[in-house]
């Protein structure tokens, strides 16, 4: 299928992109295009103008500053996958990147595009929640920073306003152990359920555990019930079993022909348990 006609503008700086967004009604940001273009082709969305931000060099790249990892929104999944800095500073992000789509998708799709799109089955939202990422959003009146816990507001929706751009994402860079487990839909490769977990422990005692879950519900969430049951306690297989068994408490899971709600909620519990076992060796 062919998209409806649209005007194409390439921006070369964030200021220019913001200016273009303000001066055109019904304009949309185009990053890697791997979620937007398929939707355009099916005419599920028909913006009048696309503003390409993939040529803005300041939106690309990974650096460490004051102990934090700072990732430009236009950085591709592949760049994150291949970054030594990410591997060292955020094992969780390093674990997510290679599990996204296939290598062609990872070469085009961007970290920021994925977060802005807020697909209920997207992989990055779970990780952003688990590392409590700070998302920097630029608009007409400068920039604002929003924590991941406040960023996702519903299925395919975030706090980003139509005239704003996500510019960079800050995540803790102390190398906290983390892992992403993904149960892939056999056809699409998207997550039926994905769990992103970080955990610290010392001499058999759990420090802090954080758990982000995607795919199960219309919007990714933190499994705080499980986190509270674990933080500060002595590691034991029994404790992990018990805590993980509550991972789906109160959830209204998505349901489709691939995975009914009960299956998704079972997956959440099992996968949280497995991820905890891998990180806490119990």
């Amino acid at each position: 299928m062919h998209p409806a006609p649209f005007a194409y503008k390439a921006a070369h700086s964030v200021e220019e992109a913001l200016q273009l967004l303000r001066s055109h009604e019904d304009a949309k940001i185009l990053a890697g295009g791997h979620s937007l273009i398929p939707a355009l082709k099916l005419r599920l969305t028909q913006p009048a103008v696309l503003i390409d931000i993939s040529k803005i060099s300041s939106l690309r790249g990974i650096r460490r500053e004051n102990g934090k990892l700072i990732i430009g929104s236009g950085t591709t999944h592949r760049e994150i996958e291949q970054s030594h800095l990410v591997a060292e500073a955020s094992p969780l992000l390093a674990s997510v990147a290679p599990q996204i789509g296939d290598v062609q998708v990872r070469h085009r799709g961007t970290f920021g595009g994925s977060l802005a799109h807020a697909d209920p089955a997207g992989d990055w939202p779970a990780a952003a929640l688990a590392v409590d990422a700070e998302l920097v959003i630029a608009g007409a009146h400068g920039t604002r920073t929003v924590h991941a816990s406040e960023f996702f507001t519903g299925m395919l929706t975030t706090v980003i306003e139509p005239d704003e751009i996500l510019t960079e994402i800050k995540v803790p860079g102390e190398g906290t152990p983390g892992i992403y487990l993904k149960h892939r839909n056999a056809a699409s490769g998207y997550a039926t359920v994905g769990v992103a977990v970080t955990a610290t422990h010392d001499h058999g005692r759990i420090g802090t555990v954080t758990i982000g879950v995607t795919g199960a519900t219309p919007v990714a969430f933190r499994a705080s019930i499980v986190e509270h049951a674990l933080n500060g306690h002595a590691v034991s297989a029994h404790l992990l079993d018990e805590a993980a068994s509550h991972a789906a408490d109160g959830l209204e899971c998505l349901s489709d022909i691939h995975a009914p709600a009960a299956y998704r909620s079972q997956l959440v519990k099992v996968m949280v348990r497995r991820a905890l076992g891998k990180l806490l060796h119990a």
């Binding site: 939707a39 099916l42 599920l44 209920p120 089955a121 519903g154 299925m155 998505l254 349901s255 489709d256």
Partner: peptide, 17 residues
């Protein structure tokens, strides 16, 4: 239709909303 071919997984939660 098209909404079904790529959007099917979004439809039930959207309908519920």
């Amino acid at each position: 239709g098209p909404v079904f071919s790529i959007g099917s997984r979004f439809v039930p939660p959207a309908a519920k909303m």
